[in-house]
Simulated assay, not measured.
Amino acid sequence: MASAAFEDIVADFEFLEDWEDRYRYVIEAGKAMEPLDAALCVPATKVDGCASQVWLHPVIEDGVFHFDGASDAMIVSGLIAVLRMLYNGLTVKEVTEVNAAEELARLGLNDHLSAQRSNGLRAMIERVHQVAAAAV
């Protein structure tokens, strides 16, 4: 139940056989994001549990979920971009129903992230689900 943008990533990953190419893809996706306004990088938007500095800024308009984010690490910025493609544009109810672990497994990310990065990714997913669940 991922967004169409996420399905595009899945299709792209099917053509990228080498993990290093996939890794570059994720980093480039992070670089392509609009920078998060520095005024939004505050304790209220900071995600605890990440080895890097991570901020997520969710916005819900008319029941539709969107978020922006930033990190001080290139790969984590890329993971934020992937999560944005997974969740942005879904209704808050749909966000709560997404099995992120299953969807991300389609990309093979879990096999190539360090334990710290995996923990940070789980913390970001938890934050997204908490915000969406509070808005349902």
Score class of each variant (00 low, 15 high):
Ile80Ala: 06
Val95Arg: 00
Phe65Val: 11
Arg22Asp: 05
Leu16Thr: 03
Ala11Asn: 11
Asp37Cys: 06
Glu102Tyr: 08
Tyr23Thr: 03
His129Phe: 01
Ala105His: 02
Asp48Gly: 14
Ala51Gly: 11
Val42Leu: 13
Ala105Thr: 12
Glu97Leu: 11
Val54Gln: 03
Ile9Gln: 08
Asp72His: 09
Asn99Ser: 15
Ser118Gln: 13
Arg22Asn: 07
Ala73Arg: 11
Met74Trp: 04
Asn99Lys: 15
Arg24Pro: 04
Leu56Phe: 06
Val10Trp: 02
Pro58Gln: 07
Gly78Leu: 06
Trp55Phe: 14
His57Gly: 01
Met1Ala: 13
Tyr23Arg: 13
Ala101Asn: 11
Gly30Tyr: 10
Thr91Arg: 07
Leu104Asp: 04
Arg117Val: 02
Thr91Pro: 05
Leu83Trp: 08
Val76Leu: 07
Asn119Lys: 10
Ala132His: 04
Ala132Glu: 06
Ala70Glu: 15
Asn88Gln: 05
Val131Trp: 02
Gly49Ser: 09
Ala11Phe: 06
Glu126Cys: 03
Ser52Met: 02
Gly63Ala: 01
Ala39Trp: 06
Asp12Met: 10
Ala44Gln: 15
Glu126His: 12
Val92Gly: 01
Thr91Cys: 07
Phe13Ser: 08
Asp111Gly: 14
Ala70Thr: 09
Leu90Asn: 04
Arg22Thr: 05
Glu126Lys: 13
Glu94His: 03
Val92Thr: 15
Glu7Arg: 14
Glu20Cys: 00
Val59Tyr: 00
Val131Glu: 11
Val82Ser: 01
Ala115Lys: 06
His112Asn: 14
His112Phe: 04
Ser52Phe: 03
Ser118Ala: 13
Ala2Cys: 01
Ile27Gln: 09
Lys31Ala: 07
Ala5Leu: 12
Glu94Pro: 00
Met33Leu: 15
Leu90Trp: 03
Val26Trp: 08
Ala5Gln: 15
